[in-house]
Structure formats: structure tokens, C-alpha cells
Simulated scan of single mutants.
Amino acid sequence: MDSRAFVAIGANLGDARATVLRAMDDLDRLPRTRVSARSSLYRSAPVDAGGPDFINAVVALQTGLDPHALLAELQRLEAGAGRERPYRNAPRTLDLDLLRHGDAVLETPQLSLPHPRLAERAFVLLPLAEIAPEQVTSQQLAQVADQRIERL
């Protein structure tokens, strides 16, 4: 049975806007997966990091992949976009974060669901609220109101 999953997309190296748009299309081509909703693009300042502003978005997926299989596909797409991980929160060509996968609650070395920092980031909450308002509370939005972000 398919699950509804949410993936945050971000990039701040190279042509970040084109990379985010391409990632949306690539996610729609994953096995047993389709994109059911796409947020607008947003520009945000890096959080706990340096480098240029990020371009961000969130997509909703209907997927027959289990959480770990979906994570492996996300990491494959990141690698294909030239993602390197020289240090924590380094600037990146593509970042794909699995935010939620159905009602799954997981805590493994590879994957935590729901995403542990989901509620701390305006660049996740605003686009998520745009496509799935039931996933975000007004209190969560108020807690990130001081973070610089603009809808493009």
C-alpha cells in the first residue's frame, strides 16, 4: 500500500533554482513513487552554516517504497547532483530530507522519522504548510517567524 511522504529539497551551490526544480522531476520518476504536490520555491538564509542563500521547496509523494528504500533513493539523487559531505551543514548542491513517511516513527542510525529538526526550520515549515497545512501548527510557524525566508 502506498504511503504519503514529504521531502524537503534544498540547494545553495551552482544553479540552485534549476537543481531544486530538477529534483522535483527526479522524485516523480522514482520507482513506485509519484509527486502529488509541489510547494513554491523559497529563498532562505543558511541555518547553522555559511555560504549563499538556499533555494528550498517541499514535495508530497505517494510512494510504495518503505522509508529506508526511499532514503536510499534520495541519497542516490543527491550523489547524482554532486552532493559532498565535507562537514556538518556544509553548502550543498542538493539536499533531500525525508520529513515524514506515513505515520512511521523510526529512530535508527540511518533515519529518524519524523525528521528531528522539522519544526525548527522555516524553510521546511512554510513550504510544507503551503502543500499540507494539516502537517504544521500555527505555534510551529510562530516559533520560526524570526528566520529570514521569502517565497519566490
Rank of each mutant, 00 (worst) to 15 (best):
residue 31 P to Y: 08
residue 146 D to S: 11
residue 87 Y to K: 05
residue 152 L to N: 11
residue 148 R to L: 12
residue 150 E to N: 00
residue 75 Q to F: 07
residue 59 V to C: 13
residue 139 Q to N: 09
residue 33 T to I: 05
residue 86 P to S: 08
residue 19 T to V: 15
residue 107 E to L: 12
residue 15 D to K: 13
residue 56 N to S: 12
residue 44 S to W: 00
residue 97 D to E: 12
residue 106 L to T: 03
residue 93 T to R: 14
residue 114 P to R: 05
residue 43 R to A: 14
residue 38 R to A: 02
residue 13 L to E: 02
residue 24 M to V: 10
residue 106 L to F: 04
residue 46 P to V: 11
residue 142 A to T: 11
residue 50 G to T: 15
residue 87 Y to I: 01
residue 31 P to K: 04
residue 1 M to H: 07
residue 74 L to N: 03
residue 31 P to G: 05
residue 149 I to H: 03
residue 71 L to D: 12
residue 136 V to K: 01
residue 43 R to C: 13
residue 2 D to F: 12
residue 40 S to V: 06
residue 71 L to F: 06
residue 132 A to W: 01
residue 6 F to E: 01
residue 34 R to G: 09
residue 42 Y to R: 11
residue 113 L to M: 04
residue 36 S to G: 03
residue 116 P to E: 07
residue 58 V to W: 00
residue 69 A to P: 12
residue 135 Q to C: 15
residue 86 P to D: 04
residue 68 H to M: 12
residue 75 Q to V: 03
residue 54 F to Q: 09
residue 106 L to N: 09
residue 38 R to I: 03
residue 116 P to N: 10
residue 85 R to P: 03
residue 101 H to Q: 05
residue 131 I to W: 00
residue 48 D to T: 10
residue 5 A to I: 02
residue 101 H to G: 04
residue 51 G to P: 15
residue 37 A to F: 05
residue 109 P to F: 05
residue 6 F to V: 04
residue 107 E to M: 11
residue 58 V to Q: 05
residue 47 V to I: 15
residue 36 S to P: 01
residue 36 S to M: 08
residue 93 T to A: 10
residue 17 R to G: 03
residue 87 Y to C: 08
residue 124 V to T: 01
residue 97 D to K: 02
residue 54 F to R: 02
residue 135 Q to F: 00
residue 72 A to M: 03
residue 46 P to H: 08
residue 105 V to S: 08
residue 55 I to Y: 01
residue 3 S to N: 11
residue 71 L to I: 05
residue 65 L to W: 04
residue 18 A to I: 07
residue 58 V to C: 07
residue 130 E to K: 10
residue 81 A to D: 13
residue 21 L to I: 12
residue 138 S to V: 03
residue 64 G to D: 06
residue 103 D to N: 03
residue 45 A to E: 15
residue 83 R to L: 12
residue 72 A to F: 01
residue 66 D to R: 10
residue 65 L to R: 04
residue 75 Q to T: 07
residue 90 A to G: 13
residue 106 L to P: 08
residue 49 A to E: 10
residue 135 Q to H: 07
residue 98 L to W: 00
residue 116 P to D: 11
residue 27 L to N: 07
residue 45 A to Q: 14
residue 62 Q to T: 14
residue 40 S to G: 08
residue 149 I to N: 02
residue 69 A to C: 09
residue 150 E to A: 08
residue 60 A to S: 14
residue 49 A to P: 12
residue 121 R to C: 09
residue 125 L to R: 07
residue 48 D to K: 08
residue 31 P to N: 08
residue 125 L to A: 06
residue 77 L to C: 11
residue 47 V to E: 14
residue 59 V to Y: 08
residue 131 I to A: 02
residue 29 R to M: 13
residue 21 L to P: 11
residue 85 R to S: 09
residue 136 V to H: 00
residue 52 P to Q: 14
residue 85 R to V: 13
residue 79 A to S: 14
residue 139 Q to I: 02
residue 131 I to F: 01
residue 21 L to F: 09
residue 33 T to W: 07
residue 69 A to S: 15
residue 12 N to K: 08
residue 70 L to T: 02
residue 90 A to I: 08
residue 54 F to T: 11
residue 85 R to W: 10
residue 83 R to Y: 11
residue 72 A to Y: 02
residue 2 D to H: 13
residue 73 E to V: 01
residue 73 E to W: 06
residue 45 A to C: 14
